[in-house]
Computed example of a mutant assay.
Amino acid sequence: MKTTPTYGISYIEGSDLVSNAAAGFKKAAETTEAALKLVDQRSTIEGVKPAIAGTLATLATMRGATGQTGYVTSDGNNNGPYCWNGSAWVKYAQNTQIDSLQSQIAAITQGYEAGTITGRTNADAVLTIPWEHHTTAPKSVTVTVLRRSDQSDVSVYKVDALLWSVTASYAWVRFRNQLTDSWATNFGPVSVTWAAYW
């Protein structure tokens, strides 16, 4: 015999022996009745009103209808709402836990920014890379000069890119012209690829 995935209602298969048919029908009836009882409990006053206990240990001795809410009122860190999952009381996530999880997810999925920026350096030979999604300084930034497709003589654009300053809002990349051994002021256009990690 197999059972249905949601409520565990048993049913007879073609490979089941005829000699076991009576037991199979009985099992099907019992599991159907259990499923109906579970559904009925959810719509009764007993099934929808919260179970209230002073301590988690007391709440654990109570049974509920699946989805029913329970509350612990006088047990320190165990205080708060719980949900009966069919076999045990499980604590609902609190706002602080949700905030913490959201921060952890953001750190994993949004812990970096990257891109390519093109422009002319300013009078200090600096090109600024602004952060779009972060308000704190990154832990690491990598920059690389990118050869532009419109550069016919690469030697003219032989510059070094130095990560000069990193702040909560931007990074400064300062360029030095290797041919003239001087800062590449008002130079460009120049392109850099960059990646910042928080």
Rank of each mutant, 00 (worst) to 15 (best):
V90C: 11
V90M: 12
V90F: 04
V90S: 10
K91M: 09
K91H: 08
K91R: 15
A93T: 10
Q94M: 10
N95E: 09
N95K: 13
N95F: 02
T96P: 00
T96I: 06
Q97D: 08
I98G: 02
D99H: 10
D99P: 04
D99W: 06
S100K: 14
S100V: 01
S100N: 14
S100T: 14
S100M: 07
L101N: 06
L101Q: 09
Q102R: 14
Q102G: 03
S103T: 12
S103Y: 03
S103F: 05
Q104N: 13
I105E: 04
I105C: 08
I105L: 15
I105N: 06
I105A: 12
A106W: 06
A106Q: 12
A106C: 10
A107V: 07
A107D: 13
A107F: 08
I108K: 09
I108S: 07
I108V: 13
T109Y: 12
T109E: 11
T109H: 09
Q110M: 10
Q110R: 15
G111P: 08
G111T: 03
G111E: 02
G111V: 07
Y112G: 05
Y112A: 11
E113T: 05
E113I: 00
E113L: 01
E113A: 04
A114S: 14
A114W: 08
A114N: 13
A114K: 14
G115V: 03
G115F: 01
G115T: 06
T116H: 03
T116F: 00
T116W: 01
T118V: 09
G119K: 04
G119H: 04
G119L: 02
G119A: 05
R120N: 12
R120A: 06
N122M: 01
N122T: 02
N122R: 05
N122W: 02
A123P: 03
A123H: 11
A123S: 15
D124G: 10
D124I: 00
D124Q: 14
D124W: 01
A125F: 06
V126I: 15
V126T: 11
V126F: 06
L127V: 09
L127K: 03
T128K: 14
I129C: 06
I129P: 05
I129Y: 05
I129F: 05
P130H: 04
W131C: 10
E132Q: 14
H133R: 12
H133N: 13
H133W: 07
H133A: 10
H133F: 10
H134Y: 08
T135Y: 06
T135D: 13
T135P: 07
T135N: 15
T136Q: 14
T136I: 13
A137D: 03
P138H: 03
P138C: 02
P138G: 07
K139R: 12
K139I: 00
S140D: 08
S140T: 11
S140I: 05
V141Q: 02
T142S: 09
T142C: 02
V143T: 12
T144N: 12
T144P: 00
T144D: 07
